[in-house]
Amino acid sequence: MTANADVLVPVVDRGESLEELVHAAEEHTRGGISNPVLGMILFIASEVMFFAGLFAAYFNIRSNAPVWPPLGNVEFNLRGHVLLPAILTLMLVTSSVTCQIGIWAIRRGDRKGLMRAFVVTIVLGILFLSGQAYDYTTLGFGINDGPFGSTFYTLTGFHGAHVFAGVLMLGVVLYRGMAGQFSARHHDAVEAASLYWHFVDVVWICLFTLLYILG
């Protein structure tokens, strides 16, 4: 007799239907977290270490520099250039809120609500990437302009790549949602994508605070 059959015996005695028996067996053996969400959380944990390496490099270079921002031919003045990044931050935070609204909608079984919320989230993500690309053209320094330029573009560039990946992920979820693949009970991919999006948002808040506010 298998482990699941052991579970089913007392349920059969109560005269439950086959569907209820299977559901009971699933509930008994299943963990408290779905595989897609578990995988995404483990992936995010590895991403925490990835960004930690970049932040640590920034702190190391900064603490070893006699003057920060370094003096040179190019002026590094991010504090005087904070308006557009602040608007972009607001956009990304708002996109996290709309993403969560989508999650709440699908938990209620509201597919249209999920679609609407995720369309807004994706549009805000694309606007963020466009704004960041424009911001790069107005900064006045490049990735080759010393340690400041290289760390700045490495940190924000890798974050931008993650936002791009998040937009793609949300796009796939949106497509699957339009195909009717999600319901109130089955929407693990939506939960996993939203976790990733929130993580990307948190990383940007750290970057914005470090690079633009603290200087």
């Binding site: 944990a45 590895s46 925490v48 270490m49 960004f51 930690a52 390496g53 932040f55 640590a56 490099a57 702190f59 190391n60 900064r62 603490s63």
Partner: peptide, 14 residues
């Protein structure tokens, strides 16, 4: 050392 501390804190979070 801020760099090493960042790595250790992030390691704790991860």
């Amino acid at each position: 050392d801020a760099g090493g501390t960042t790595m250790l804190v992030a390691l704790g979070i991860a």
